[in-house]
């Protein structure tokens, strides 16, 4: 039996029919999954909310699969993440963090990057661009980097065309789609190694972003696995029009 204090962001939250809350936290000490027994009826329900930064006291017994949350203190919340134009991007970040980082895998950098991504999505006027930049940064940190120097199929140098199957870059000979515009190509080639601030100062034009999202979706699906949030990454205005129609 041991007790531990952790500080992290809630990246998943599920309420069981019995009224327990099962949360996954991303902390500097890695991902932690824990259960708050009877959580929906107590004070923990408001603290253990999605995207909340909480300090928790956990209690783990050798027999139990999950640690039990005994105390939780709210350390920060970003209420603007509930806004329709930001919400799906925050979910994508949380889902990516959940898929990319494992329990017990210490990474202060991953926590800082993820927390920064949520802050950016909450506060920046262009949350879509924050999500694109930070998705690539998170993937890069976890070791998933686009192969940009050589064609993903034949190995020819300087590929510039989209790979509709793997989300990588293809040469003109292997590709069936037109080349990326210069700004998009520059982003794909440098997103991982360029500082976040520099990427944020030079956003790719909005009309070029759907191709970048498609490439990212293919790359993540092939390299990491299925992510549900893609389906909701449609501008809220378009969704509203569809609903009304």
């Amino acid at each position: 039996m041991r007790s531990a204090n952790r500080s992290g962001v809630v990246i998943r939250r599920r309420v069981t029919p019995a009224g327990d809350i099962i949360v996954t936290l991303l902390t500097p000490q890695g991902k932690v999954k824990a259960i708050a027994r009877g959580g929906v009826r107590g004070a923990l329900r408001s603290r253990l909310n999605l995207f909340h930064h909480v300090g928790v006291q956990l209690y783990q017994t050798p027999q139990a699969d999950l640690a039990t949350v005994q105390q939780a203190v709210l350390e920060g919340a970003l209420p603007r993440l509930a806004e329709p134009e930001r919400y799906a991007f925050a979910h994508l970040m949380a889902e990516l963090a959940d898929a990319l980082f494992q329990e017990g895998e210490f990474s202060e950098q991953a926590f800082d990057l993820f927390a920064g991504a949520l802050r950016g999505i909450s506060h920046q006027p262009d949350p879509e661009w924050v999500a694109l930049v930070m998705s690539h940064k998170l993937l890069g940190l976890a070791g998933f980097v686009l192969q940009t120097a050589r064609c993903a199929r034949c190995g020819a140098p300087d590929p510039a065309h989209p790979d509709p199957l793997g989300g990588q870059l293809l040469c003109g000979g292997c590709a069936s789609l037109p080349a990326y515009p210069p700004a998009s190509l520059d982003f794909l080639q440098n997103a991982v190694r360029r500082p976040v601030r520099a990427s944020m100062e030079h956003p790719v034009p909005e009309d070029e972003r759907p191709a970048l999202w498609r490439a990212l979706e293919r790359f993540v699906t092939v390299q990491v696995g299925g992510v549900h949030s893609w389906r909701q990454l449609v501008p809220s205005r378009a969704v509203a029009q569809t609903e009304r129609g």
Binding site: F51, H52, A82, A240
Partner: peptide, 16 residues
């Protein structure tokens, strides 16, 4: 509900 998901759904409906 007053969770993040409940708030997001409410904001979405408000705009609709």
């Amino acid at each position: 509900g007053t969770t993040v998901e409940g708030d997001a759904t409410a904001l979405y409906l408000q705009r609709l």
